[in-house]
Structure formats: C-alpha cells, structure tokens
Amino acid sequence: MPLPPFQSSGLLTMGVELELMLLDPRDYSLAPAALNLLDLMRVRQDNRFVFCPEITQGMVEFNSAIHPRWHTLRDELTAMRGFLTSLASECGIRIAGGGTHALQDWKDREFFPAARYEGLGEKYGYLSKKFTIFGMHVHIGVGDGDTAIELIRAVSPWVPLLIALSCASPYQEGVDTGFACSRLHSLTPFPYSGAMPDFADWAACERYINGLEAWGIVASIKDFYWDIRPKPEFGTIEFRIFDTPLTGDIAADLAGLVQLLCARMLYEKCPVPECDVYPHNRFQACRYGLAGEMVDPYSGERRSFAEAAADLLNQLAPFAGELDAREVLARIRQKLEPGMTQSDAIVQVVKHHNGDLRRLLAWQANCFSSGEITLP
C-alpha cells in the first residue's frame, strides 16, 4: 500500500510513545500479562490514556496526547503513572522503565496474539523475540513532507548526543554488556535500521519507500527502523533512539529537549557536515554514554559528549523562553554536573546489591511508581 499523504500538524507539537516492562513481583521476570492488563483497561472504560500491545506479552506501549509544551506532557505522564500503577497492582504485576530487561531470555517470550506480530515472528525468526526491548519514541510536528526531510537532515548530527544523554540499558541476559545503551544494538540486524538515507526531498523519500513496498520487500513504513523516520500519517518526524526512561519526568525532559533542538534547526540553517562521523559518534554514545568521544561533524573537534551537551544547552537557551522550556534546560544541566547517566545509576545499584539483578529490577519498578530516582 503506498504511503498516505503527508498530514498537516502543528509545527513543533510533540508526543511520546513509551514501551514499558510488565514485571512479576515474585522474581521480577517479565510477566506475560499484556492481554490481562489491556482487558482490564477496556472494562474500566477510562479513555484518558491510550495503551496498546507490543510485539511480546511482557510489555505494553503508552501513547501520549499531542502537546505544544513539555510541562503539559509531564502532567499527562504523571497522571498516567498513577493510573497504570494502580491497574498493574490489580493484575498482580509491576511496571518499570529502562531500555532492556536485565534478565530476560528471548526464548521465553510469547508473541502478543495479533497478525502483525505473528507475521514479524515468521519473517524475522528469533530476532523478533529478541526485539523485547523498551524504547521511547518522540514525535515532533513538522507540517509537511519537505520540512520533515530537511529537519531530519539538520538534527541527525545531534542524534548520538541524544543517545548519550538518555542511555539506560547496560544489562542484557544477565550480563553487563559494557555498553551504556545496548538496546540499539538489538535493532542493528534488522534491514533498514540506523541512519535514514539522505533524501533530497519528500518526493524522493516517498519514491524509495513506495518502490520497496511495490516489490514486496516492506509492508509499510513501520518496517523501517531508522533512528529518525518521517510519519506522514501523523505529520511528524519520529525519534526512535531513546531507551525508555526510568521516570516520566525524564521522559518529558528529553521530549522537551528534542522540541528545542528542532526549533533551533528550523530557524537557524546549519552547514553541511564535512565528514560522515555519524557511525563513530553513535557507537561512542552507545558504548560510553556521556563519557564517550564526539567528533564535531563540521570542524573535526573531539570532546566528550558531556562537554558537547553543555555547549548545546547554551545554544538552545534563546528558544527556551518562547517554548516555556527554561526548566528543561536547567534540569538537564543539573544531570550533566555529576556526569551520571541512567545507565551509570543502574550499574551503581547492581554493585550496591552485589550483582543481584532482581534487586535492580525491583529498584527500576520503584523508580517508575515513585517518579524519582533514589540511589542506595
């Protein structure tokens, strides 16, 4: 089916999708409870929040409303947390954020009973079950297809820095991977992952996607796992690089940061990068987080992501007043001072509990339910 027309949307409006873990409080394994939880939501007929299934039964996805400002998104996430925590308790489960479940074994996963997910299982085999990872997708309204392509091109050099700021997945299958963000490497084996090709305009992107659909290689734009992809049916671009944050406030902060970055790139033309340093910077961000090395794509200068982030926050300050986002910059700047990412906090908790990953998962559930990260 050809792509739908690119819808008009409010410029720089935003929304998020959050993939959340469903945990069994007895041993903090992933609980195959998505059907029960979604059924309970239907029985309650509470339409304030939108939840949907994901590929396996140990997870659900929350879809926010559309927001012009980050603080209304934060308010919705806070209310959603209370609603979901209460319903999860009735189902005998707990909810947690984070990019990966530290102990899950892909062989134990069960597909959610829907044609799309069963089709993915048939197409991708074991990779589909290893796709039980947890990300946050941020949508930014762009208004038209050409603006979408221009904006993706402009913000792409900063994607590795966003990864470094948000990493929260150091453990997989009971092992410290040594990566601050291991989740994104679960996407690497899939076709059409990583950076989107540099299309000249929306028409070129549309021809590319429609051509692959016509040949039966992909079924829809959902089969493109690019770090940022256009979403014509929503009139947005979608950032897909974030690990699900440990708290709703962090999710709102990161969405607000993306909104500010997009505002700057819309109104300040950036030069064309001298070299393609994206693969290097992306790897460094996933491997080391804020301590990684970022090579400036325009000058070749090398500095840590923490230093680059501090500089970027200063560059975004002129746009923060109009978007009511000064607090976003202040909150992210506070996190830069100790230089501790969410992944660093996760590793610290595991060390405190002598390697007990179940205690880690209980702590992650506590972070979600309380809305705060408290280190032992």
Rank of each mutant, 00 (worst) to 15 (best):
S156E: 11
G141N: 12
G194D: 04
L361A: 11
A252N: 00
D105F: 00
S128W: 00
E337A: 15
E61A: 00
G82Q: 12
R303Y: 02
I140R: 09
S169H: 03
G194L: 13
E274L: 05
L84A: 14
G15C: 03
M21Y: 07
Y192G: 03
M21C: 11
D253E: 10
D75T: 09
V43F: 12
E213Q: 12
E301W: 11
I373A: 06
D296N: 09
N366P: 07
P271I: 03
D108N: 00
L165H: 06
E122T: 06
K335H: 02
G339W: 05
L312K: 08
M59L: 14
G141A: 08
A309C: 10
H353G: 00
Q45K: 13
F234K: 07
D198G: 15
T374Q: 09
E76Y: 02
G235Y: 06
G339M: 01
W215E: 14
S186H: 10
S299Y: 09
I95G: 03
D227Q: 15
G99T: 01
D223A: 10
Y117A: 08
G125C: 02
H352T: 01
K123H: 14
S166N: 15
V295S: 01
L35I: 07
L165T: 05
N36P: 15
P297V: 06
P25M: 05
W202L: 06
L212C: 08
T132F: 01
R26I: 05
P2I: 10
V138G: 04
R74Q: 08
M59P: 10
F51H: 11
F112V: 10
E307S: 10
I373H: 07
F305N: 10
